[in-house]
Design a protein around this nucleic acid. Sequence first.
DNA 1: CCCGTAGCCTACCGATCAGTAGGTACGGGA
DNA 2: TCCCGTACCTACTGATCGGTAGGCTACGGG
Lengths: 217, 217
Amino acid sequence: MSVDEESRPARAKRLPREVRERQILDAAVTVFSQHGYHNASMDEISDVAGVSKPMIYAYLGHKEDLFAACIRREASQLMAAIADGVHAEAPPDMQLWHGLRAFFRFVGDQRESWRVLHRQATSQGGPFSEELLAMRTRAITLVDALLVRSATSRGHTATQSTEALAAALVGAGESLADWWLDHPDVPEKVVASWLMNLVWMGLGNLVDGAVWTPTGE
Amino acid sequence: MSVDEESRPARAKRLPREVRERQILDAAVTVFSQHGYHNASMDEISDVAGVSKPMIYAYLGHKEDLFAACIRREASQLMAAIADGVHAEAPPDMQLWHGLRAFFRFVGDQRESWRVLHRQATSQGGPFSEELLAMRTRAITLVDALLVRSATSRGHTATQSTEALAAALVGAGESLADWWLDHPDVPEKVVASWLMNLVWMGLGNLVDGAVWTPTGE
DNA sequence: CCCGTAGCCTACCGATCAGTAGGTACGGGA
DNA sequence: TCCCGTACCTACTGATCGGTAGGCTACGGG
């Protein structure tokens, strides 16, 4: 009512769906990582994204769908980053080493992504947990495959224990990544080497002063 | 309105506060472990506990307080169980071994407790996360102390890495415990030995067929 | 120059639920 | 027997928040 036409603030131009979807996903990752799934409100996400709520529903669907979409995107990036760092022909210890480094690099670079992937990962309470569980299972399967290859290449037969060990290893990585978030002054390479030494050498050797060092970096 | 006195169902007697508090906490642990913090409703908790909602507020306070009380109780039990299993004079590997066994025994026996402690542990979104974080930190500190004792007894000086390693170890335990919940057919001792071998011997030795075995059980 | 479609919004609904007001019954002490 | 405190309840409110109805506006094609 009686607002001068010229005084209107410059409105964001109309943008193609593709672009808006990315904006919304970015905002969603930010908000989810800050407040967690339940305490994140669609209103805040729409606010951060710079669009109105119905746009989110039109493009990405309900809250659960939106969350699942975030998980899928971020998890894919994480997986890709790790797969990128690992060379399938390298010896097992080097594969593990480069996998760990790629993982920690990702966590360091994409803190928000990591938070939304992990902090929510274990918390149950929604149907969306399927999505997260599936992603985590994929990670464990990946590590499991590495272990199985290592074992069989030495002439051992694979056992159920490799899957369990893979789960333990993934958990160790997650937990250490969390610790790292609280100690950002430690370089990525150092953190990775700590974990590498733990899982490859074992505490039994570490307390005796032995260390694992990468060969042919 | 015209309900026969005699037809009333047998009402639970009036009980001392102490007893009701326990009933409420038990119910809360059950419900929280099933639905998670956010999806657990005070109505359901009061229902399961067999009391009315105002009783909960009178005795245990608001939802967050109630949750914190659950965490405190269950975490104390877990800590006590572990401390009970470990003998401070034993060599480091045996301390770790018995600690792990006590931990997995607890998880196996008190699944609900474990769920409410861990599944919610990493999920942020409430002020109550402080309570959980504090408990987890206590656990890490405990393991850290063990590592430091091991290292210094061998003449090494303690470094920041022990705390990180402790975090990794705790994470590995948590993750493996979760895996175990999905594979209940595996005996507790076996799971514990897998983790013990991983962290004490290291993968480097394991793929070569070496194993750690407890001495003087 | 019109019309369809796709981008985009304001303003609202309805359900769920934490938290409470205000009352009833029971028991023990005087 | 009266009284008072404590155990305990039913029934409500207030707010938050997911989700939607309906409409407005720019733009491209005929």
